[in-house]
Amino acid sequence: MTDIPKLESITNQVRRDIVRMVHANNSGHPGGSLGCAEFLVALYFKTMNHNKDFSMDGVGEDIFYLSNGHISPVWYSVLARSGYFPVSELSTFRKIDSRLQGHPATHEGLEGIRMASGSLGQGLSVAIGTCLAKKLNKDNSIVYTLHGDGELQEGQNWEAIMYASANKVDNIIATVDYNKKQIDGSLDNVLNMGDLKAKFESFGWMVFEEEKGNDMESVLNVLNSAKGETKKEKPIVILLHTEMGNGVDFMMGTHKWHGSAPNDEQLEIALNQNIETLGDY
């Protein structure tokens, strides 16, 4: 695909935005944000049919919900780079009077956000509601979501997972950021989730599993394949294997950077590993 170098170059800039935003406040969640950079760039710059002139109802366009709201830096960067709001506004992240709250919110009217998230486990239910509204509106577009793997420990998800298959909600593509890490350590140590694929399948979902969640071509391909299976009376989930901290070598292979910010020196190293492609904010 000829788009890939362009998308990778956007991803580079998104990674710079993430570490700079988190560094500037000495707070935020860089690990999961970096790990989902390819996914969100693929979604907003290629896969989704969406309108940067934001309307809350999103009729006739694909909609994305971020359920694991703590990875807001990657979403804010991708929204700004897509043209939803000025890139310069990224500098207000987590500051007082900002529209870029620590966790995404509709309250301040930031374009691109349709639901607050942060308290985990709520996004799938919300997305299913919007899928039903789309069906009632005879709107053929798709609802996309992203969830943390640890987030699936919240019971509400399984209420939603059960509902979606029982009611043939087939205009949803949920993605699980399967990095196998959460704040307190590895997923297996904190609360082993067992065989996630088998769990989703036994709940009646169609499951795609992508081992290379930080490879742009693989991400585009799995999203494309998933899209081809919508409207077939089954909800769809992608288990996207990603690496927390991907793109910044010292943030990879550990859960330590889930919610900590780099210092000045670490920022310098991180930026050197991700060249400026679209101009820093």
Binding site: D57, S125, G129, A133, E159
Partner: peptide, 23 residues
């Protein structure tokens, strides 16, 4: 009409999502 079963948390989330689209 949406029968959600004994799953109130999911019901509230779905209701919130249904508003996106004008319901």
């Amino acid at each position: 009409f949406f029968q959600v079963g004994i799953a109130e948390a999911n019901m509230i989330g779905m209701a919130a999502g249904l508003t996106v689209g004008g319901k």
